[in-house]
Design a protein around this nucleic acid. Structure first.
Lengths: 236, 236
DNA sequence: CATATCACTTGATAATTATCAAGCATAAAT
DNA sequence: ATTTATGCTTGATAATTATCAAGTGATATG
């Protein structure tokens, strides 16, 4: 375990309030590992062995049923995932794979639960993180159920614009096929939705997006803080 | 506050581990209220004033955007709702209304947060509840994104069959229009999906459902514990 | 009893979204 | 440079789902 990774972890809301000894105890069992792209990290249905933290790279969370697959989220540094399965000692609901070369810290789930049982401050941090994630998934549900695919795309574009410092030009952070899956549509349908946004002053050139009429786009997207704003600093 | 309500609350996983004095402290600020059917309890976007607990009756959680509305869940006794907004001190993401005459306990959010900050055991109980709810929403997302409407209905029927003690005849617990909204479809589409289930040996007579060919139904539904099983004793 | 209301159903049609197949462009591999 | 692979786009078509309008049946209301 590289000592330089520890400060990053310590800054996470999840571990910030924890007494130093507890944190060190957690770190003793932890290990850091670097994975190539497209490596399966966890498989849905398996029991939770480790709490995962992405230090570098990018990880996709996805789920499958009956031969179909859908992207639930992509996780970027520095952020944990599958916290709920870890504290519940329950099977993973999602699978995870690296999208690019990624460095992760793996904290044995049993250690996490041990600290969790002994340390009220940690328990409170977990609550904060879980609440935020819960709310993110509820927002995602509202997005899926209340909006059409072009409306979801429009809001995705507005959101990328916002988190990119309101620059009217930016690059898509992930492949279009992943965006399509995340937004709950096929790649073909995304392609057509992208063409549909031209009448709202949005041009796509491969990964590059240019917004020329923000008002028109906003008029279609009608973004709402109760659907589109993040409770979490990172992720989703 | 009726003293007979207290034991019910005390049995909730959320409050079970809590020291008696803390529990009493929480109860001092609480009050019980009975509401007629179809009363708006909370409105999405408002700040969290109270943690709500349903003692009797039934409450619908729903969300709106751009004139559209969708049912997220119905809450039955004895269960809390909007816990995440309460602990985060954040705006409600969903509105709530009574579906029938309902009795609720309202716990001031600030009291809940106070106890939460002081009591590690309570924080751990909150985590357990939140994790379960988080996982329920993730399952719901998988249901929405991976299944067609008739598949969602088929799984809904299988689920009702399971929680009703595997009796091949049972009654729908809520109005069909609510079921449609919960399953993410229009009432018309639900009507047609119901007809579509006839070829799988499921007959609907108003609210009454009869399953005559469970294998056929299961073959269509393909229920999965990673989508359809509950982490929570009640709700969803 | 008659009427009104409301959930539900059905039919006709439209909109949305998915599927299948082919073609294009870019980037990696030989 | 040519080939190969891959992601993306486009077209044609089909399936799914929504919308609008009308009708049915049950229950409630006057």
């Amino acid at each position: 375990m590289r000592p330089s990774d520890v400060p990053d972890l310590r800054d996470l809301e999840l571990f910030r309030e924890m007494p130093g000894e507890r944190f060190d105890e957690l770190m003793r069992g932890a290990y850091v590992q670097t994975f190539p792209p497209m490596v399966d990290l966890i498989t849905e249905g398996d029991m939770s062995d480790f709490l995962h933290v992405v230090l570098e790279g990018r990880v996709e969370l996805f789920a499958s049923w009956n031969g179909r697959e859908t992207t639930i989220a992509t996780v970027e540094p520095i952020s944990t995932f599958i916290l709920a399965a870890t504290v519940k000692d329950a099977p993973y609901l999602m699978s995870a794979r690296t999208l690019e070369k990624s460095r992760l810290i793996l904290l044995p789930s049993s250690d996490v639960r041990k600290v969790f049982d002994a340390d009220g401050a940690f328990a409170r941090s977990v609550v904060s993180e879980l609440s935020a994630r819960y709310r993110a998934v509820v927002k995602n549900t509202k997005n899926l159920k209340l909006r059409s695919s072009i409306e979801r795309l429009a809001n995705y574009v507005v959101h990328q614009y916002e988190i990119g410092g309101q620059n009217p030009e930016f690059d898509l952070p992930i492949e279009k096929r992943k965006i399509a899956s995340f937004l709950g549509m096929t790649p073909e349908n995304l392609s057509r939705a992208i063409r549909g946004l031209r009448s709202y002053g949005v041009e796509f050139d491969a990964q590059h997006v240019t917004i020329s009429d923000l008002d028109a786009l906003r008029g279609l997207a009608k973004p709402s803080p109760l659907i589109d704003d993040a409770d979490l600093p990172s992720v989703f």
